[in-house]
Every structure is written in C-alpha cells, then in structure tokens.
Design a protein around this nucleic acid. Structure first.
Lengths: 210, 210
DNA sequence: ACAAATTTAGACAGGCTTGTCTAATTCGTC
DNA sequence: GACGAATTAGACAAGCCTGTCTAAATTTGT
C-alpha cells in the first residue's frame, strides 16, 4: 500500500490527532524517515491526502454523472440504476468514505482546505447533476420547477435509508443500497414524474367509474 | 459552564485524542484535579458525555415528535413548521450538533456505546415518527404504503439542502432551514398527498377541457 | 465560628510522539 | 560490478499529556 493510501486509512480510523507516523509507516510498509522525506511533516501529509482524495472523488463523481440516463428506456429502472452507481462509485467506495470522514472529523480545523473542496466538489457536481435533470424535464419526461432543488432531493431520497449507517461510518449491504435507491426513486417519480398524458379513452373510463 | 458541557464542547472541537484535560478544565472554570475527582479518567468522562447527550437529545426529539400535526388545519404549512421545529430542537441545537459530531468522529472507537445510542435513539424515534405518518394516512390525508420509509424520506427531504453545511459542521441560517423544509415538504406532498377527492363538478370541467 | 469536605495550584513521574540525525543497507542504472 | 540515490533501523532531544500527589485555600453545613 502506498504512503498516501496508508495515511488516509490511518487518519480516518484514528483522527488527525490520534494518528501517529509510526502507524502510517507500518501500514504503508516503509520506514518513518521515508514519510518525512516525501511529505515534510504530519500536517503537510494530511493536506496532501485530502487534496488527493478530493481529486479522485471528483473524477469518480463526474465519470458517474456521465452515465446519467439522458434517453431513458425505463425511467424508473434507469434512475434506480444511476442512484446505485452513485452509491457504489462515489459514496460507499474507499475514497468516498475516507473523504467524507475526514471532512466531518477535521473540517473545522482546516477551513480553507475544505472550502477549496466545497468549491471543487459540491460546487461543481451539484450543478452537473441538476443540468441532467433539467434536460429530462425539457424532454418532457419530468415535471420539475427547480432542477437544483430536484437534484439535491433526488440524492437525499436515494440515500434516505442509509443515513444511520453512514453516521456510524458503516457500509450498507448491496441490498440496502438497492432498497433505498428503489424506494427513493419511486417517491421521486411520484413527485416529479409526468402524469401520463390522459388519453380520451382513459378519461371516459374515469368518468364511468365516478 | 459545567464540566460536562465544557468537555462536550472540547471533545467536539478537538476530537477525543486531540482534546486534553487542561483545555476542558479551563473551559469549565475548574481545576484539573476536580475533573479527575468527578469522572475518574478521560475515557470515563467521554462516555459520561455521550450518555448525557444521548439522553438529552432523545428527550428533545420525543418532545418535538409530540408536536406532530395529528389534526392539521393546513397540512403543508403544519408539516413545514414541524420540520423546522425538528431542525431547531433536535438537529441544529447545541446537543444535536455535538452528539452528531461525536458519533461521526468516535463511532468506530466505541462500538458498544454507540450501538446503545442507536437502539435508544434512531431505534425508538423513527418508529415514533412513522406512527404519526401512519395516523395521517389512516385519516385519509396522505397516501402512504410504508410509513417507515415515508418517515425517513420526510426527514431526508426536509434536510436535503443542508447536507453540505452539516458535513462541515456548520449551522445553516434560519432562512436556509425554512427554505429546505418548504421545498422538502412540497415534494413530499407531491409524492404522498391525497389527490383531492374529485367532485362531480370538477370532473365535468376536466372533461370539457379535454 | 468551627469542623469537615471540597477545591485548588503546582510539582511530578512515566509514557508517548514528533521530527532530526547518523550510519548502514538496499536499489536502480550504467 | 560499480556508483549514486534512495531507504532503512535505530538512537535521540524536546515537547506534550495523563494521572497522581501534596499542601494550602476555600467552601459548606451546623
């Protein structure tokens, strides 16, 4: 394991103050001195790790956004699959878990570093997701007023049932991810799905049933 | 400030490993020895704080749940107000912020302690909220299949726009809380609101417009 | 006002961590 | 095989923190 990977792992497990260089060296399989040679000191190492994780996570998020179903065959199934991909590639994978933990744990201690993350990360990914939903709405497949709001609500719904697990730093099972995404997307479509344009025939039926 | 309050504040700001007893003593306005007299050692102090926060947060959550609009006059407005109260009294207040931070930061180090929290906290509060939504559904005001899912989605939607702020440990402004709750509840009601029982007259109008 | 209990400041040993240094070893490359 | 660069183990000083101890000061109850 590389120094950066080992450091990410140890900083996440022990927090910045609780981590020590010897643990990282042992986990990376190098000597303590090598770490000082490469990264200067503990704080510089920490910053390097956050930058590295931010970059890799962003790459993963954009890659996954590019698989958004712009021409869905089955809107519900395609959005569920997209939500599950987001989970796997961006939230539950190693980098995602580590970056989230570091932000939560050390966010207060490095305001400018994490402000940078906020701009490069959420500041660029949310609009990208919103743009995809806006496109679906424009194509007449969804009924959305504010695509930014819809994007945030989509992700919130898709992960609604995983919150407690995330809080404790756990990883949900595949089943839990799919379940949460399915329930979330169904609710999302109940709210934003286009009512099927009502045919004359179905209107006749509705009247007859009244 | 009491020892427990000061300790909660310092442990949250510095993490368990980064906190030291002198900081806590200074912030509490007592001598270091007094802390050792009362709480034994650093770890016992930490456990005492988590127990204390868990208890107080649970009390706050149940108190707020008891203000759930069982007989709403204006369903949308009443649910928005409820969501805002949840935010104020349980999530954004001092205890809520502190407990959340400690769970996220130290959850991995005290599995049994936080398992206890999970049972007493989410394990009891989610069903309580779900029961309220089930009651609204039973009264014919909402169209809900699974009240447990609906309860989690309700809270997820109400806080959908505050996630990034929470991640970094920040506190959203009053406006942001109301905005997120409003958007969240509107979406929730688009998904689960009862379509108004269609009167004969409005059916006539619908047919005429076709 | 007095006695008991609590709190305080400060010193202290022991342990751990950071970051540096050195001398020996290994590695990559020619 | 030989040479320069990188890596290693280990020792090391300096600093910090925990948890204990003591003797003085303060508070409390009566």
């Amino acid at each position: 394991m590389s120094i950066v990977d080992a450091a990410a792992s140890v900083f996440c497990r022990e927090s910045f103050a609780g981590a020590n260089i010897d643990m990282i060296a042992a986990e990376a399989g190098v000597s303590r001195q090598t770490i000082y040679n490469h990264h200067g000191d503990k704080e510089k190492l920490f910053v390097a790790i956050v930058r590295d994780l931010t970059e890799r996570c962003n790459a993963g998020i954009f890659a996954t956004i590019s698989t958004f179903p712009d021409q869905p065959k089955d809107l519900e199934a395609d959005l569920i699959a997209f939500a599950v991909r987001m989970n796997h590639n961006c939230i539950c994978n190693r980098d995602g878990k580590f970056l989230r933990k570091l932000i939560q744990t050390e966010g207060g201690r490095y305001p400018e570093l994490f402000a940078e993350w906020r701009e490069e990360g959420p500041g660029r990914t949310w609009p990208a997701i919103a743009a995809r939903f806006a496109r679906l709405a424009h194509a007449g497949l969804l009924d959305i007023d504010d695509p930014d709001v819809a994007a945030r609500q989509f992700m919130a719904l898709a992960n609604a049932e995983l919150q407690t697990t995330f809080m404790l730093g756990g990883t949900p099972t595949e089943d839990e991810v799919v379940q949460s995404a399915t329930n979330g997307v169904r609710t999302f479509l109940r709210a934003f799905g286009k009512r099927q344009p009502v045919s004359r025939a179905s209107k006749q039926r509705a009247l007859a049933n009244a």
